[in-house]
Structures are given as structure tokens and as C-alpha cells.
């Protein structure tokens, strides 16, 4: 099970939250958003369907910008958030 925050390129981070049920993807995303800098982008990969709603909700509540939620394959999503 992976939950490492990895830098993909300048200003873009990837967090793999595969195999985590609620509440973990949201908690991991919260932590990651605290770690990165304003203006940087976080991609959270999840296979937990409720997180597709909950992670963007949490991000919006915290004032970040949800760029996109993309279904990358059956049962897997990529949530893209820009830290504000």
C-alpha cells in the first residue's frame, strides 16, 4: 500500500491513495496540501468512490482550487487540486 507524496515535475505532486477507504484519502490529501506550496498542484489517485466527492469538497472548503476529477480507468480516479 502506497501513500507517498511524490514530486512529478516542478510544481506538480502525485499522491497515490490506492487501497484506502474513507477517511484515509481525504486525510492524506489534507496532509499533502499542507506540505506543498501555494500555486503548486496535487494529483490524488484513488479507487475509493466516495473520495471523488469528499476530497474536492474538503479542498474547496479550505479555499483551494479543484481543477478536475478525471476517471483514469474503471474504478480509479485522479483528483487534481491547485493549492491556493
Amino acid at each position: 500500500m502506497m501513500n507517498e507524496l511524490k514530486q512529478k515535475e516542478e510544481g506538480l505532486y502525485h499522491l497515490e491513495a490506492i487501497g484506502y477507504s474513507c477517511p484515509y484519502p481525504e486525510l492524506l490529501a489534507r496532509q499533502a496540501l499542507e506540505e506543498i506550496n501555494e500555486g503548486e498542484v496535487l494529483h490524488i489517485e484513488t479507487d475509493n468512490k466516495p473520495s471523488v466527492e469528499e476530497v474536492p469538497e474538503m479542498a474547496t472548503e479550505k479555499g483551494h482550487q479543484v481543477i478536475e476529477v478525471e476517471q483514469i480507468e474503471k474504478g480509479r480516479w485522479l483528483i487534481k487540486i491547485k493549492k491556493k
Partner: peptide, 10 residues
């Protein structure tokens, strides 16, 4: 409670 995962997993 892994039922929210749409795949036969967890």
C-alpha cells in the same frame, strides 16, 4: 467497510 470501492476488492 470497503464497500465503497467499486471493484471486488478490500
Amino acid at each position: 467497510c470497503g464497500q465503497a470501492h467499486p471493484q471486488p476488492k478490500y
